[in-house]
């Protein structure tokens, strides 16, 4: 999965990178040998559990699993199925809805981080701890709690809506609302994560900029758009890359919130829940493998596009 070292770590890396390395030349045989020994355990683990499986999945994607074991070569049949199957198109569409809702989390988190950055504001660490709480909570538990809140007959969401005179709904079993209901829970559980990234980003902006802008008569809104947003753009870029990667792999909440008999099941299925269904419930490993490659292409493609277009809006100081 993707990783982006923090700016602090990256700076530290840059610092040491400038130094020349030569002292290790002493006794190269011994150092080399121990270096290999240091790397051996994890290299073995990667080989067995990551690299070999990657090749195998690639092979699987061109085969069909027999009921009694053994796989037969079927060429591009699995990929053809992936491209033609309407449920894949549906899952792709749902996944893009989750991604769009995930991206909506970012502006919310930016505004919250900006509010928490108000000079002299008290209780910031309490707010931060509370907003972050859902992110560390077991997703299975989060799904169950929200199913209860969304319950059509006794749920608190309908209860709260009735106060302002809005009619209740069966949020997670109504095909027209279920995907948004689940997406909302994703937003709820992730906003604290992005908040932490943006708080760190805003803290790194020199206070003088704000003071200078204030002296020049810039109001809070103007300061937000002219100072905070541009100087936060590296953090926003980082967050949006992470957000796209994570949203495209949604599984836990959908799996937990949607029972197998839910009428809205089809309209909430993501690529990964479909993958799970094909691979482990319908015994269609070849199709699942092809689907996984489609997902990887999607992730790689969207990540590439983001890196490609970052020059247009990301300002590195």
């Amino acid at each position: 999965m993707a990783v982006f070292p923090s700016t602090a770590a990256a700076q530290a890396a840059g610092r040491t990178g400038r130094r020349t390395r030569k002292a290790t030349g002493r006794g190269p045989g011994r150092t080399q040998r121990s270096a290999y020994l240091f790397i051996a355990p994890i290299a073995l683990g990667f080989l067995v559990f990551y690299l070999w499986p990657l090749l195998q999945t690639f092979y699987f994607s061109f085969t069909s699993f027999g009921v009694f074991g053994g796989n037969t070569w079927v060429g591009g049949e699995n990929y053809q199925r992936v491209v033609q199957d309407v449920t894949v198109g549906r899952a792709l569409l749902n996944t893009l809805v989750y991604m769009a809702m995930g991206l909506v989390t970012l502006p919310v988190a930016i505004v919250l981080a900006d509010l928490m950055n108000r000079p002299g504001l008290r209780g910031v660490s309490v707010y931060r701890a509370l907003y972050f709480l859902p992110f560390i909570t077991l997703p299975t538990a989060v799904g169950l709690v929200w199913n209860w809140l969304y319950n059509g007959d006794f749920g608190m969401v309908n209860e709260a809506l009735s106060v302002i005179g809005v009619d209740g709904r069966y949020w997670v079993s109504d095909p027209s609302t279920a995907v948004y209901a689940i997406g909302t829970v994703m937003v709820w559980s992730q906003v604290g994560y992005y908040l932490i990234i943006f708080i760190a980003g805003i803290k790194a902006i020199p206070r003088d900029y704000y003071e200078a802008a204030q002296l020049d008569g810039a109001g809070p809104v103007r300061r937000f758009f002219r100072i905070t947003l541009p100087l936060l753009s590296p953090s926003i870029f980082f967050a949006s890359v992470i957000c796209v990667i994570n949203s495209l792999q949604q599984f836990d909440l959908i799996y937990v919130m949607m029972s197998p008999v839910n009428p809205a099941l089809g309209s909430t299925q993501s690529i990964v829940t479909l993958f799970y269904k094909w691979a482990f419930e319908e015994n269609s490993q070849g199709g699942a493998a092809a689907l996984a490659f489609l997902l990887m292409l999607l992730i790689a493609g969207l990540t590439y596009l983001q890196f490609r277009f970052q020059k247009r809006w990301v300002h590195y100081a």
Binding site: M1, A2, V3, F46, V48, F49, Y50, L51, W52, P53, L54, Q56, T57, F60, Q249, V272, F275, A279, Q285, A288, A289, A292, F293, L295, M296, I299, A300
Partner: peptide, 21 residues
């Protein structure tokens, strides 16, 4: 570089063979 590539691969791509292993 090989380690880096491990990082880029989504988990779903590995699960079937991992299960088999």
């Amino acid at each position: 570089a090989v380690f880096l590539s491990v990082l880029m691969v989504p988990a779903q791509l590995l699960i079937l063979p991992q299960h088999e292993i």
